[in-house]
Design a protein around this nucleic acid. Structure first.
Lengths: 188, 188
DNA sequence: CTGATCATGTAATTCGTTACATGATTCC
DNA sequence: GGAATCATGTAACGAATTACATGATCAG
């Protein structure tokens, strides 16, 4: 019974409480999205598959005239989640970073053009860092009130990671400025 | 004429010199792989597409009885590459990290189990860091001899990034050890 | 002579995104 | 009354991996 990684996003979210597919997607968008994204096109079919496998149990929960279906973990689902969490299997690590890719090939660029690319890349990472920082108060509250410490720890890591990349861009940006105008740098 | 990002990996590699599909793949595996991977299943069809678009030019270059086809950039290909390198479009940034995903959901785990996961994740990042360090001498040589500075810079970033994540794991690991055995920690 | 490497491709499959279709409810 | 949000799904498409098929050459 080999499950895709995205199945565990769903199982994990369901352990935190009964949820609809829509709610799972909303949660993912403000939490795991930055290191594991998921779209409706994955979540709804995956919920159906997990139900057929007996790992989750769905229940109609219409609210007014609004059709609604909430899911919860079954005992099997709980076990599958724990097995994955404690598994020693090599972790799936994947990074696709267009900015670093451009950097790799940018020897042919003029220093000014390269500096502009560093700036854009830095700004993009700074924006993500700010988005994550905006979420922090809510995560800190959840850590306090519901004892969910790890989501906050992971969020802090996410912020540190974004800043780490942004700092590297800033250093590269400065280096370009110095090599492009060494005389001006000496004067200052 | 919208090109996929992987097309630029090919164009970028071809700017460094005439290459076969096989050589491009080998190069990717020791350089861009860590932030932009590509497989034969992408490279060969993409080369054919780029040739039809007039961005690369293929030429038979059999070596003995070995069928071989080398490619080089056309003027259009060179322009497409530079346009991409200097484009201000938002960068494609994608991260899928199973270790962080597990961390996010690991509140329910025992501290010892969590510590074991930190250790595995740290070791995995340390292994990648070592792989990258093994490549460094070659990249440093290329930087010196052929003036290709950026691949070395990017490699150094890759190593720093792997170590950054490994360090975070190590800190988390220590924190688990302290919370699991605070008395032992005080004694030592 | 045998295994590693060079070399090119295709086919099947998986994974994931985006857009579309549909409709109710809630807030302003 | 209209826009935003809640809610569920499907279809088309795209991106990428893996496995397969084929065959030559080179190093030991």
């Amino acid at each position: 019974m080999e499950l895709g990684k995205t199945a565990y996003v769903i199982l994990g979210m369901l352990r935190l409480g009964r949820r609809t597919g829509y709610e799972i997607k909303s949660l993912v968008d403000v939490s795991t999205r930055f290191f594991w994204a998921a779209s409706y096109g994955q979540i709804y079919p995956e919920l159906a598959r997990l139900e057929k496998l007996g790992l989750v149990r769905g229940r109609r929960a219409d609210s007014g005239g609004r059709r609604r279906k909430t899911y919860e973990l079954t005992a099997d689902g709980e076990r599958a989640l724990d097995d994955w969490l404690t598994s020693p299997a090599p972790l799936h690590l994947e990074l696709r970073h267009e900015g670093v890719l451009k950097a790799f090939f940018s020897d042919a660029l003029a220093p000014g053009e390269r500096a502009a690319q560093w700036r854009r890349m830095r700004e993009q990472h700074e924006r993500v860092a700010q988005q994550l920082q905006a979420i922090e108060p809510g995560a800190a509250e959840a850590a306090d009130e519901r004892g969910e410490r790890m989501p906050l720890k992971v969020l802090e890591f996410g912020i540190a990671y974004q800043q780490f990349v942004a700092d590297w861009c800033a250093r590269m940006e400065r280096a370009e400025a110095e090599s492009a105008a060494p005389v001006a740098a000496e004067r200052s």
